[in-house]
């Protein structure tokens, strides 16, 4: 098990390096000059030079990358061009919202998706149709549009839930939950469909396998067959999809946090993109990549734990 984790991490390190390099040098390609962004249009050449010097913009690219990596090693991701706050601090401040959103959505959509998937594998017919339609609609309807429709129904018409904004769980737990309901529904819709479909097809495949036949012929009842044996084996591929869902939710938050005005990482990404705040974007790229790597690692560990063939060898 430790070997699996070790190998994964070993493969991940160059990936982080490549991504950091990619984002760093992509940024160098920019036509926009950060110094101009900071100073605005009215500035003297001397001021301009001073800013460039301060930002280290006059050094060769490779040296700048080295400095940047050194800073990175110390946990220094630079400062936002927009408001001069340290990037790491901004990222930390924004993480809570995004993680609340993604974790709650993953748990919710896994429960509903796996439940629907099992039920539709065992019963087929109508339920299977429901899973298919949910998955198709969840994928087809743009999530920002679904969000607006939900706001129109639940916030504007029924006044059940807040349309936008975020409440810290420390401030009010019910307020926190309420502020998450609509974003979670928006993000869950496609996730439930994908997890549901994967669960159904894996369950059907496993239920059709010779070992299930052996166990059924041996007299095991439905519940043991479905929940103990079939689900346990199907879980191996379901967990992969759940991990993917988690990763794709990182992208989903970009939209959801913008529509619902949640102060998270996704909203930050959009804001930084339109403000041309490159240090923040670089930080986000690295941060997201690290999150993806960690999630993949967790998936691998769970995968190995579920699969004795890997666990033992």
């Amino acid at each position: 098990m430790l070997k699996i984790i070790g190998r994964r991490l070993l493969v991940s390190l160059p990936l982080v390096l490549i991504v950091s390099m990619l984002s760093f040098f992509l940024v160098l390609l920019t036509h926009g000059d950060p110094a101009v962004v900071i100073l605005g249009m009215n500035h003297t050449p001397a001021e301009y030079e001073a800013v460039r010097e301060k930002l280290g913009l006059n050094e060769p690219a490779l040296t700048r990358y080295e400095h940047w990596l050194e800073d990175l090693g110390r946990g220094d991701l630079g400062v936002s061009i927009f408001n001069s706050e340290p990037v790491l601090k901004i990222l930390k401040g924004r993480s809570g919202v995004t993680f609340s959103l993604i974790i709650v959505t993953t748990i919710f959509s896994s429960f509903v998706g796996i439940g629907l998937g099992i039920a539709s594998a065992v019963r087929r017919g109508l339920l299977a149709r429901i899973v298919d339609v949910t998955s198709l609609l969840g994928m087809a309807l743009p999530n920002f549009w679904v969000a607006l429709v939900l706001i129109a129904i639940f916030s504007v018409s029924l006044r059940f839930l807040p349309a936008i904004g975020y409440v810290q769980p420390g401030t009010s737990l019910s307020g926190w939950l309420k502020s998450l309901v609509l974003p979670v529904i928006v993000l869950s819709a496609p996730a439930i469909g994908i997890i549901g479909q994967q669960t159904r097809s894996s369950m059907l495949e496993v239920l059709d396998s010779p070992y299930i036949r052996t166990l059924r012929a041996g007299g095991l009842g439905r519940s043991s067959i479905i929940y103990r044996h079939a689900l346990r084996n199907a879980a191996i591929s379901i967990i992969t999809i759940v991990g993917l869902t988690f990763v794709s939710l990182l992208s989903g938050t970009v939209i959801a946090e913008t529509v619902f005005a949640l102060p998270g990482l996704g909203g930050l990404a959009v804001q930084a993109t339109s403000q041309h705040d490159l240090p923040v974007i670089q930080g986000l790229v690295l941060y997201f990549t690290v999150i993806v790597i960690i999630v993949n690692l967790i998936v691998d560990v769970v995968y190995a734990w579920l699969n004795p063939r890997i666990r033992i060898s």
């Binding site: 940024v27 990182l250 990404a269 959009v270 930084a272 790229v285 997201f288 990549t289 993806v292």
Partner: peptide, 12 residues
């Protein structure tokens, strides 16, 4: 994550 690199490119 695809979206974040796309955003980087748009920022540039």
């Amino acid at each position: 994550p695809t979206i974040i690199l796309v955003l980087v490119v748009i920022a540039i």
